[in-house]
């Protein structure tokens, strides 16, 4: 495993921890999109179907369990927790799951490396992960005051994607036969979706003002 891949996994882990920290300690999910969180839960469910059948490493299995567990835990907190759910911004979080899930599933049926069930689900998870952040970005745009933890959550997620691209470039040059068009293109699309957010995030940090995305 190279340093980019490891750092990417760690920033991904950080993003989840920041979000859980916010929800668990402040008992608030203000500014967090339930739609995005539900899509991530679906992404991990579809991608890690092989968790029991295909052992790669202890690291791999533990990380998969963490991402699966935390994504469902976050959804549970927002939907069911007596206090947390009160802060959920239902009026502004209006993105429809199906508009993202259905096209991704159809695309996975059409464009995949092998048309086996697990392979299609894996491809579906890549396509869906690429666009799963959209409801969250829309919600941020509609939110006047983005708190620090929410901003950091999205920042860490974006950093994770950027580091994965470095990882692919590194692996392409160091490993024989490492060519994965589907992973690369969906990963690139996903990273580009953060470009706008990053621009405003760094500006707010540089000028030391509160983060706000233009409508």
């Amino acid at each position: 495993m190279n340093i980019f891949r490891f750092s990417g996994d760690m920033t991904h882990l950080m993003s989840v921890l920041v979000l859980l920290l916010k929800i668990h300690t402040i008992k608030s999910c203000a500014g967090i999109s339930l739609k995005t969180q539900e899509l991530y839960a679906l992404v991990f469910l579809a991608r890690y179907l092989d968790i029991v059948t295909n052992f790669i490493s202890l690291y791999n299995t533990i990380m998969k369990l963490i991402f699966l567990g935390s994504s469902f835990m976050i959804v549970w907190y927002i939907r069911r927790h007596r206090i947390v759910r009160r802060s959920y911004d239902k009026e502004h979080d209006t993105f429809r799951h199906l508009f993202l899930v259905l096209p991704c599933f159809i695309l996975a049926l059409l464009i995949n490396e092998r048309s086996a069930f697990k392979e299609i689900m894996w491809t579906f998870s890549l396509y869906l992960e690429a666009v799963a952040i959209l409801p969250q970005l829309v919600l941020l745009q509609r939110t006047k005051n983005i708190d620090n933890l929410t901003g950091q959550y999205v920042f860490f997620l974006g950093a994770y994607r950027a580091l994965y691209i470095c990882n692919w470039i590194y692996r392409y040059f160091t490993e024989p036969h490492y060519v994965h068009w589907i992973t690369w293109i969906s990963g690139l699309v996903q990273t580009l979706l953060y470009a706008d957010f990053f621009y405003y995030y760094f500006n707010s940090w540089k000028n030391n003002v509160k983060l706000q995305l233009p409508a």
């Binding site: 891949r5 092989d50 295909n54 790669i56 791999n60 692996r171 490993e175 036969h177 994965h180």
Partner: peptide, 10 residues
């Protein structure tokens, strides 16, 4: 332990 398919990624 890294498999050929890149499926060792999360």
């Amino acid at each position: 332990t890294e498999d050929q398919n890149g499926k060792d990624e999360l």
